[in-house]
Design a protein around this nucleic acid. Structure first.
Length: 657
DNA sequence: CAAAGCCGTTTTTTT
DNA sequence: AACGGCTTTG
């Protein structure tokens, strides 16, 4: 089972009982170790279904599923449970919905729904001269939730005026969610934490489903996830966490490196294993990475050793503006492809923010180089897609007000925004949903007669839809419903010409396609599970994304999205102060900049053979030109910056033992 | 009630 | 520069 593994890896794969911390450096074969370990557990008699492996992304979960299945043959009904924190929690919530007193059908809100609720909340509690913006409120609520701060505690914690108003807003926000029978992303975890805290039997019941727990990317756990992990594992103590403190890059959503750093204290007698051999990058690239990360102090002191010493020296390039940066990078890519040295799929362009890929995209398109933008949710950002999904969400849960508002008059059917607002006011006042007010003939009297009739017709439309999807969802039914809605009118209304109309209509067709691929996967395709999949795995729904990857294309992705991936040739672009490190991180200094450094580290360690880092001396933003200076990380990497840790590595650095 | 036009905001990263 | 919300106009 452990053929081809090094000693540290063998130990990680073969020590099967008790708590274990695997500190897996970048490119150390972590995924292999994890999958071998799962396979090994099964081989030694653990029933697959008694193993729970938790990952952070759906992609990672799928990959793990796949690779375990390659290692060991499994009966279809006897598979280890490998899922993300969020789908794990949704499953727990569905099982325990009764206890929670939650409606069986709740909507999972996305970020834009959240911001529209925040906007509404702020309008209602608008205080004189408050500078709190909807986005601030949304951010603060999420910030609190990620740190386990509930409504009641928020008021105590608040210190500034803004925070006090936000605490009031938080309460109203939760009321709104209740009224809409909805939860947001953070709630999924928070509710499970509540559930375990309030009902110890349920915690035991859920924990007893498994004998082994594995957590991947443990450095990214936030406080709530940490609680959940503990709650599930404290009985059997067979907990294996795998991670790299140097790759902790999700501080903004509450992840704390502390969790992985304190694992040996949290779980006494934990086996600690370090995987420091790097099989991914050549020595020259790894040297840069090691030099860079040594500037961080709060970390396990480990140094990656290259299994492939030597290698081409990484390049650092300066360009006059972001356009020539894109031109030159693409030119260099073009040459390598033209010479047959590289296939497009071997090349990746990494960037910090989502506005950066624009120029590169244009340039790649200009030269007919195939490319994929990974991790962008653009498909679900398209208006048509959002509309159709909103219709489906309303059919599943008519209380879902954000979705209802989106589609109630798309296409125009005589229910004006003013009318909707009137109804929402009534609904809010009585603490009921918009849908319930619509159903109330008495309440409808505040509307003019034509609007009243329009609402009644709309109700009939929704009722027909609910009936249609009651039993299952499939492409035919969706098509039928779209026709019933006369959605083609909406598409036509938003299009200036035939070409645009066809473009927009093809988005609608893509939703239908994704439904049909969903029905193929499931034995009983329920509308609710379809919506759940969309909410939790938005990016996976794009079947064509995998297809495009197969299609052999240059990958464009953010540094965050690049974690866990590797490419022979990597271009890291926009290495400028203000971008990487991002200016908002620089503004607060300290740990925020350290996190940016880890982000740069993640980028560098994605490269297998060749790495090019580039920057632009000027950059245009909102139509204005700004001077840029090279990122401090560039200076650090090439040894042109003072490194307090380099001279005295033992001082603040924790040794793992 | 619907369409057109104006104003103000936005951009850090994501499940 | 681009989008969404709000106001005005038809």
């Amino acid at each position: 089972m452990d053929a081809g593994l090094n000693d540290a890896q063998k130990l990680a794969v073969n020590t099967l009982a008790g708590p274990m911390l695997v500190l897996a450096g970048a490119g150390s074969g972590k995924t292999r170790v994890v999958t071998f370990r799962i396979a090994n557990l099964i081989k030694h008699g653990t029933k697959p279904s008694r193993i729970l492996a938790v990952t952070f992304t759906n992609k990672a979960a799928q990959e793990m599923q796949h690779r375990v299945a390659e290692l060991i043959s499994l009966k279809p009904d006897e598979r280890p449970e490998i899922s993300t924190f969020h789908s794990l929690c949704v499953r727990i919530l569905r099982r325990q919905a009764e206890v929670l007193g939650y409606p069986a059908k709740f909507s999972i809100l996305d970020a834009s729904d959240q911001s529209s609720i925040c906007r509404k909340v702020l309008r209602e509690i608008r205080m004189a001269d408050s500078t709190l913006r909807p986005r601030d409120l949304q951010y603060l609520i999420s910030h609190w939730k990620n740190r386990g701060i509930r409504v009641a505690q928020a008021a105590h914690i608040a210190t500034t005026d803004k925070e006090h108003i936000a605490a009031v807003g938080y309460r109203r926000y939760q009321d709104e969610l209740m009224r809409c029978a909805a939860v947001d992303f953070d709630d999924l975890l928070l509710l499970v934490d509540d559930l375990f805290g309030t009902y110890p039997d349920i915690r035991k019941q859920e924990a007893s489903r498994f004998d082994h727990l594995l957590v991947d990317e443990y450095q990214d756990t936030n406080g709530i996830q940490y609680n959940i992990v503990r709650a599930l594992a404290e009985g059997h103590r067979n907990i294996c966490v795998v991670g790299d403190d140097d790759q902790s890059i999700y501080g903004f959503r509450g992840s704390e490196v502390e969790h992985i750093l304190s694992f040996p204290r949290d779980w006494s007698g934990a086996t600690e294993i370090r995987l420091e051999a790097n099989y991914r990058s050549v020595g020259s690239i790894l040297e840069l990475a090691n030099t860079l990360i040594a500037y961080n102090s709060n970390r396990f002191d480990k140094i990656l050793k290259a299994a492939r010493p030597g290698g081409k020296r990484p390049r650092i390039e300066q360009f006059k503006d972001e356009e020539s940066e894109a031109e030159e990078v693409v030119k260099s890519i073009r040459i390598q492809i033209a010479r047959g040295e590289r296939n497009p799929r071997e090349i990746a362009i990494l960037f910090r923010t989502n506005e950066q890929p624009r120029v590169f995209e244009q340039e790649l398109r200009k030269h007919d180089i195939p490319y994929v933008i990974l991790g962008s949710k653009s498909f679900f950002d398209r208006k048509e897609v959002k509309d159709i999904v909103s219709y489906l969400r309303v059919l599943s849960n008519p209380q879902d007000e954000p979705s209802m508002r989106r589609i109630v008059n798309a296409p125009p059917r005589g229910i004006s925004n003013a009318s909707v607002m009137k109804l929402i006011d009534v609904a809010t006042e009585h603490g009921v949903s918009l849908w319930e007010v619509m159903l109330d003939d008495e309440a409808l009297k505040i509307l003019a007669v034509p609007a009243r009739d329009a609402v009644r017709n709309f109700i009939e439309l929704i009722r027909r839809g609910i009936k249609l999807f009651e039993e299952r969802i499939d492409a035919d039914r969706l098509q039928q419903f779209i026709t019933d809605c006369r959605y083609e009118k909406e598409v036509a209304r938003n299009s200036n010409d035939d070409a645009e109309r066809e473009m927009r209509w093809s988005s609608v067709e893509e939703v239908v396609n994704s439904v049909s691929s969903f029905t193929e996967k499931r034995t009983s395709p329920k509308l609710e599970s379809f919506l759940e999949e969309i909410a939790l795995a938005a990016s996976d729904m794009e079947e064509d994304k995998d297809k495009q990857l197969d299609k052999d294309a240059v990958a464009l992705l953010t540094l965050h999205a690049s974690k866990g991936l590797e490419y022979p040739v990597v271009y890291m672009v926009g290495l400028e102060e203000g971008i990487l490190p991002h200016k908002r991180a620089v503004a607060v200094e300290g740990e925020a900049v350290n996190e940016e450094r880890r982000l740069a580290y993640v980028g560098v360690t994605r490269a297998q053979d060749e790495l090019t880092m580039s920057m632009a001396l000027t950059r245009r933003k909102w139509g204005r030109v700004y001077e840029q200076i090279p990122s401090r990380f560039l200076f650090e990497m090439i040894g042109q910056a003072d490194n307090p840790n380099a001279y005295n590595p033992g001082k603040k650095v924790r040794s793992g033992k």
